[in-house]
Amino acid sequence: MTRRLAPAGLLAAALALSACADLSPTAQRTGTGALGGAAGGALIGAMAGNAGLGAAIGAGVGGAGGFAWDRHQQSNERAFNQGVQAGRASSR
């Protein structure tokens, strides 16, 4: 039974990852955070006796963390671009 499920799982993972190719950076970072959080939550939840609940909580926390990280990165990019523009304006 396990030998039949492994190829199906790999195919599903490949299709899921290929669907993320044209997402915005915000969606990619939020999704990555949610996926990582779900994996970590499932591990912790399995030790505590409820992997599904742990995965759900982890996905929510990870998604929020990924979104916050995206906002931080966007702020850094804006500050960098403003500095570049100011440097170009002052050298003229």
Rank of each mutant, 00 (worst) to 15 (best):
T2Q: 00
R3W: 11
L5C: 03
L5Q: 08
L5R: 10
A6C: 07
P7S: 10
P7F: 10
A8S: 06
L11S: 14
L11W: 09
A12H: 14
A13F: 05
L15W: 12
A16G: 11
S18Q: 11
A19M: 06
C20Y: 05
L23P: 08
S24L: 04
P25Q: 09
P25E: 07
P25M: 08
T26I: 05
R29Q: 07
T30W: 09
G31K: 14
T32C: 13
A34G: 14
L35I: 08
G36V: 07
G36R: 00
G37H: 08
G40W: 10
G41I: 01
G41A: 00
G41S: 02
A42H: 03
L43Q: 05
I44V: 09
G45R: 14
A48N: 13
A51W: 15
G52F: 15
L53V: 06
G54Y: 03
A55E: 01
A55D: 00
A56H: 01
G58K: 00
A59H: 06
V61Q: 08
G62I: 13
G63M: 13
A64Y: 07
A64P: 03
A64M: 10
G66F: 10
F67T: 09
W69C: 02
H72I: 02
H72T: 06
Q73S: 09
Q73T: 05
S75T: 04
N76W: 06
E77A: 15
R78C: 04
R78N: 04
A79S: 09
F80N: 14
N81G: 04
N81H: 12
Q82K: 05
A86V: 03
G87W: 10
G87E: 02
R88Y: 04
A89I: 04
S90L: 14
S90V: 15
